[in-house]
Write a protein that binds this DNA or RNA. Structure first.
Lengths: 208, 208
DNA sequence: TAGATTGTTAATCGATTAACAATC
DNA sequence: TAGATTGTTAATCGATTAACAATC
């Protein structure tokens, strides 16, 4: 009998815990508690303990959690106790900002290939990485065994590029194009659309 | 007796519906159904009908929803049947990309003020907007009655800037700094942290 | 009319929380 | 020992879905 899968909503909180633990470590602390974490993150301590209990027993009654240890455990659970290669497609303003962002590496990700359709851009380099043609993208991604892609192309190109990425073996896509994309079973998509978040908030602040 | 508030999780889906309706409109369609929307968004048609029913009756049995009409209604519900002024703080690579992004306006938002601490940047202009000093930020935001801010400053500065924004009357913050921030009751925060989304997905793709 | 789709109800499903024994 | 905090259970709370009468 297979164990029940851990709810996706729990998986989604683990990176949040990891981020907070990283900050606590940077602050020089060595132990924390579900209450302290809860306070930082604005959720309940019971939820944190319940979430962690899905994966094992990481704390000590009376004293709480060792920060370094718990951090390592969550990194392992999420699979970021290693560095993942990531392809970045679309080198407009946003794509360039992502390519320059230095924060991915310490969280388990390394942008290692850049692709665009614009002949003006192809051949240019960012951080010593050449921008390559999308013609060669699929073969290149497959050859490098890249499993994760960040998509910063215009809306009109998004689905087409997604299909190509999936065909090339990519199984996780972070989509910055403001549209829902369709992928086969087993391929994971996360979406970032700032306007969506802004519109969520305006609901609550309408009466000027 | 006050009516039950609409669940936040429902509010969070409305911008998604709005985005899909905008695309359908752009494609030249005039009517749609809960089933078609559900197919596009990968959720159930029952959920869409239930969500919409929180706010009124927008469809017709047998025929579905008029796209233009439903779009207007959701815009009104979310408060994006107008254009909101938005302040952007932090003009690094990401801040610049956001300042140049042309997609906000058609979704109800206009970046109308830029702030940074770097003396090199202050005085420069992006899209005809001058980058202003953070010294003058609070007074300026209050004078202009800006209620929404996008925060693209380094982690180390985030909470400090948030406190100043809140003090200046900002009630909605889109936080790009990779940290949880603390705000008083009545102030809304949404967070964008791409590494969080990537780590969420690696859980499922671990066995290389 | 026949076919389609809404809006809504009740049932199901799943997530969160409160509480506490265990124990450091 | 006394105080603190975990891991876990059961209860509560909330969200999703299935089903269908109403009706276009």
């Amino acid at each position: 009998m297979r164990p029940n899968p851990v709810p996706d909503i729990v998986i989604g909180r683990l990176p949040l815990y990891l981020r907070a633990l990283g900050q606590m470590k940077a602050e020089g602390n060595t132990v924390t508690s579900s209450h302290e974490l809860a306070g930082r993150l604005g959720i309940s301590s019971a939820q944190i303990r319940k979430d962690l209990s899905q994966f094992g027993e990481f704390g000590k009654q009376g004293t709480g959690y060792n920060i370094a240890f718990l951090r390592e455990q969550i990194q392992r659970i999420l699979g970021v106790d290693r560095t993942w290669d990531v392809a970045l497609i679309g080198l407009g303003d946003l794509g360039r900002a992502l390519a320059h962002y230095g924060g991915f590496l310490r969280r388990g990700f390394q942008i290692c290939a850049l692709y665009d359709t614009d002949p003006e851009k192809i051949g240019q380099s960012i951080r010593d990485m050449p921008i390559q043609s999308m013609e060669t993208m699929a073969a290149d991604i497959r050859r490098k065994n890249i499993k994760i892609a960040m998509l910063a192309v215009p809306l009109s190109a998004a689905q087409e590029v997604v299909d190509e990425l999936v065909g090339a073996g990519v199984v996780a896509i972070l989509n910055y194009a403001p549209t829902s994309i369709t992928v086969p079973e087993g391929v994971h998509v996360q979406q970032i659309d700032p306007a969506l978040h802004l519109q969520h908030m305006t609901y609550y602040i309408k009466p000027d």
